[in-house]
Simulated assay, not measured.
Amino acid sequence: MNEHEDAVFSAGVARRDVGAAESARAGRSWWDANADEYQADHGDFLGDARFVWGPEGLDEQDAGLLGDVTGRAVLEIGAGAAQCSRSLLARGASPVALDLSYRQLQHSRRIDLGHAVAVPAVQADAGALPFGDSVFDLAFSAYGALPFSPDGAGIMREVYRVLKPGGRWVFSLTHPVRWAFPDDPGPRGLTVRSSYFDTTPYVETDDEGQATYVEHHRTLGMRVREVAGAGFRLVDIVEPEWPEELAQVWGGWSPTRGRLIPGTAIFVCVKDGAPGGA
């Protein structure tokens, strides 16, 4: 899952419009620079071959949101070190892991070598998937790609294109309501500070004002319209509850907040009709 961690920044934070090229450049460079720390900090929770949908620890083997994966061609978008794909490989699927960050995919290769497995990996932008039409049975993203692109609708259309008829597209991201609250795991993070309806991107900048990290917020309704506009049928929106036994803090996710407000939204979609309007 691709949520930004606490860090020290030399220049500052801004809320401003950011285009696709600047977002992609910032995302690639940030994850290349921070992949080592991310995997070191969260490797125990993520495992080497575990499929969790978010910091609440909802496991796909329990949730079954993708359905039966045996023998299915599966695309993971924003794969990181491909822990989820590796889990599906062990369950009989044929996954392909895609990520914009070369360093994250190097970690995928490192884990593969340690387990004598091989998850096919591709470095590419989710907005321009390097695959033909109707080649995958399933596609998913666990906190990958969508929050870092200004063109979520374009990603949805690309996923629709590469899925076979009847294919399922499942993705998780920060619950949209969380954008109204400070990204603080303590009591301060329970008080609304911003407008939920303000979709101006969150941008961290260097000394020259260039974006080094970017996240894009969309309301729940906007995400639903992206799904429907691409031609998908929305089957479900899952909002995992915080487990009583889970004590960990991950960025702004924590027991304090997780037991009161949702932290993750999982969209379950099916390709079973003609594409709608953009």
Results as ranks from 00 to 15, higher is better:
Gln104Arg: 13
Val235Ile: 08
Arg233Ala: 15
Pro55Val: 07
Pro120Asn: 02
Met1Gln: 12
Val249Lys: 01
Arg188Ile: 00
Gln248Cys: 11
Thr70Ser: 14
Tyr102Phe: 15
Leu105Thr: 07
Gly221Ile: 10
Gln106Glu: 11
Pro255Ser: 12
Gln123Trp: 05
His216Met: 06
Ala73Phe: 06
Arg259Asn: 02
Leu173Ser: 11
Arg109Thr: 14
Pro275His: 02
Lys164Met: 02
Leu100Cys: 03
Val238His: 06
Ala230Phe: 03
Glu37Ser: 15
Arg110Met: 08
His4Ala: 14
Leu58Cys: 07
Gly57Asp: 10
Leu98His: 05
Gly27Arg: 06
Arg188Glu: 00
Ser194Phe: 13
Arg103Met: 11
Pro275Glu: 04
Val122Gly: 14
His4Ile: 14
Gly19Pro: 04
Leu89Gln: 03
Ser141Gln: 04
Val159Trp: 01
Ala79Pro: 02
Leu163Pro: 01
Phe267Met: 03
Glu245Lys: 06
Arg178Tyr: 03
Phe140Arg: 01
Gly78Val: 12
Ala97Phe: 07
Gly221Cys: 10
Val74Leu: 13
Leu100Met: 05
Leu220Asp: 10
His107Gln: 05
Leu138Ser: 10
Arg109Trp: 09
Gly80Gln: 09
Asp48Gly: 09
Arg72Ile: 04
Gly80Phe: 09
Phe197Pro: 08
Asp32Arg: 11
Ala14Gly: 15
Gly27His: 01
Ser172Ala: 13
Ser29Gln: 12
Gly19Gln: 12
Thr200Gly: 06
Ser29Val: 06
Tyr160Met: 11
Ala21Val: 05
Asn2Ala: 07
Gly127Asn: 09
Glu208Trp: 05
Pro176Tyr: 08
Val74Ile: 14
Trp253Gly: 07
Met1Trp: 13
Pro182Trp: 09
Gly27Cys: 12
Ile77Gly: 07
Lys271His: 00
Ala26Pro: 00
Ala20Val: 06
Pro95Glu: 15
Ala33Met: 10
Gly57Leu: 04
Val159Asp: 02
Pro150His: 00
Asp206Thr: 06
Gly154Phe: 07
Ala20Asp: 07
Gly78Pro: 01
Asp183Gln: 13
His175Val: 04
Ala230Tyr: 04
Ala126Met: 03
Val177Trp: 13
Gly166Val: 08
Ala121Ile: 03
Arg161Phe: 06
Arg25Tyr: 02
Thr212Phe: 07
Ile266Cys: 11
Gly132Tyr: 05
Ile155Pro: 03
Glu76Trp: 09
Ala139Pro: 01
Ala124Glu: 02
Pro262Arg: 04
Glu3Thr: 12
Ala35Met: 06
Glu204His: 12
Phe171Ala: 11
Gly114Thr: 03
Leu163Glu: 04
Phe45Ile: 14
Glu22Met: 12
Val268Tyr: 08
Thr205Ile: 12
Thr70His: 12
Glu60Asp: 11
Val117Pro: 06
Arg103Gln: 09
Arg28Ser: 07
Val52Thr: 08
Gly47Tyr: 01
Gly273Ile: 04
Leu58Val: 06
Asp17Thr: 14
Arg188Ser: 00
Gln61Gly: 10
Phe267Ile: 01
Ala230Asn: 04
Gln210Leu: 13
Leu66Cys: 02
Phe171Met: 12
Ser141Met: 07
